[in-house]
């Protein structure tokens, strides 16, 4: 509840009561057990669509997200929203879709950064979520394929994953999700059987290559 407390009046943008109670409901959800296996876990793969900001830098325009639940990618378990004229609603809906699941992105500095900024600007704080960055993980999981950090295209190409439309945040998330399935298969073989172990490995310099 700590991050939600910062949404109190005066500490940020004013939220309407319906939105606030929705956020409270999300905050009240039980946190997933990250020590269970990948194939008992729901991951949410997110991707952003951005545009240039007036004062320089990138601004979040839209977000797409696809869940991988128990190893399976199901079309019904997907999300997309444009921030448009009600960005707070869009960001709250995204949080609701995430439902505290561990997040997966390609290129966290950019995607995680953009999303956290959008959470802060529109909802008043950054929700405490777990982030996995495939850009960091993939070279360590598949060193024989590509050594060192690479562009997402290179990894998608290595596994024959179709990139349907790179301007569409959702279809881009779909491609990243398929890449994450590949990552999970190898992680399991390497004894990194749960999201917790993968998160720990990601933060261990010893395990990581090419970063």
């Amino acid at each position: 509840m700590n991050w939600l407390s910062r949404l109190l009046p005066g500490s940020g943008p004013t939220l309407d009561p319906a939105l606030r109670s929705a956020l409270e409901a999300i905050a009240a959800l039980p946190a997933p057990d990250l020590s269970r296996s990948h194939y008992e876990t729901r991951y949410v793969v997110v991707n952003t669509e951005t545009g240039p900001m007036d004062g320089g830098g990138q601004r979040l325009l839209a977000v797409g997200a696809v869940a991988i639940n128990k190893g399976l990618l199901h079309p019904g378990d997907a999300f997309q929203a444009r921030l448009g004229s009600a960005p707070a609603n869009a960001m709250a809906a995204l949080l609701k879709f995430i439902a505290k699941a561990p997040l997966v992105v390609y290129n966290a500095p950019f995607n995680q950064g953009t999303l956290e900024r959008a959470f802060e600007n529109n909802l008043g704080s950054i929700p405490p979520l777990e982030w996995l960055d495939l850009m960091v993980l993939m070279p360590s999981l598949y060193p024989e394929r590509i050594a060192g950090q690479a562009r997402m295209d290179a990894w998608l190409g290595a596994f024959g994953i179709e990139r349907l439309d790179h301007r569409d945040a959702l279809l881009e998330a779909l491609a990243v999700a398929q890449l994450h399935q590949v990552a999970l298969a190898r992680a399991k073989q390497q004894g990194l059987g749960s999201p917790r172990e993968l998160l720990d490995a990601q933060s261990s310099r010893k395990w990581l290559r090419g970063s």
Binding site: V66, P75, L174
Partner: peptide
């Protein structure tokens, strides 16, 4: 659940 997102993914299946 967002229907347009589901529709998009279902369309890729189809």
């Amino acid at each position: 659940m967002d229907n347009t997102a589901a529709d998009t993914l279902i369309r890729t299946h189809l």
